[in-house]
Simulated scan of single mutants.
Amino acid sequence: MPQFTIDHRLERDGLLIATLGLCQLRINNDRRWPWLVLIPQRNDLSEVFELAPLDQAVLTFESNMVASALKKATGATKINVGALGNIVRQLHVHVIARVEGDANWPGPVWGFETPEPWENDAREAFAARILENL
């Protein structure tokens, strides 16, 4: 199998915290929202339906597992899950915890004001909470 190559923007914007069965799990570098990104380790794909059927099932399982861990770790009002890919075409799935009254509730997180990078200690503590809940 060829080596997996990640889009430089996904690598730049997210800290790798775990490799699951199919996906890399990364924390998006915007502390305004607890925001995780799942990146299936398959090259040259931009759509979920392009995955092999077994990989589609694994992606669903891993997305649900991560969403549940994020909900437990944050007590969020709502967990948003989406695979948009309009800017970064490489297949990836956003898993975002939303809370009533957050920075842009109930509007979207994309393109809202300026991202606020995590401080290293806070991001590592958040990553540890996610891993504890997986």
Rank of each mutant, 00 (worst) to 15 (best):
N104D: 05
P117D: 06
L25N: 13
G21S: 08
F126C: 02
G82L: 02
G111P: 06
Q90F: 10
W35N: 04
K71A: 10
P53A: 08
P2W: 05
V66E: 04
T60K: 11
A128Q: 15
K71T: 04
C23G: 07
A128D: 14
I39Y: 08
I17G: 11
D55V: 13
V58W: 10
A69R: 05
L15R: 12
A67S: 13
V81H: 03
T5I: 12
I79S: 01
P115L: 02
A127G: 14
D102G: 05
E47T: 02
L16V: 11
E47F: 02
L131D: 09
I17L: 02
V99H: 15
P40R: 08
P2C: 05
L16S: 13
R123A: 04
D13F: 00
R31Y: 03
S63N: 11
G111F: 01
F61Q: 15
N28Y: 09
F49A: 15
G101I: 01
A57E: 15
V81N: 09
L15C: 03
Q3Y: 00
K71I: 02
G82Q: 03
V88S: 08
W35T: 13
R32E: 01
F61G: 14
D44T: 14
A57T: 13
M1A: 12
L10H: 08
H92G: 06
R26P: 13
P40Q: 06
E100N: 14
R9A: 10
E116P: 00
N28G: 03
A73V: 04
G111Y: 00
R12H: 12
A76D: 07
P34V: 02
F4P: 07
F126M: 03
A57L: 14
Q41A: 14
E116V: 14
T77H: 10
R12Q: 13
L51D: 12
Q3F: 01
A125W: 11
A83I: 01
L54C: 15
D55L: 11
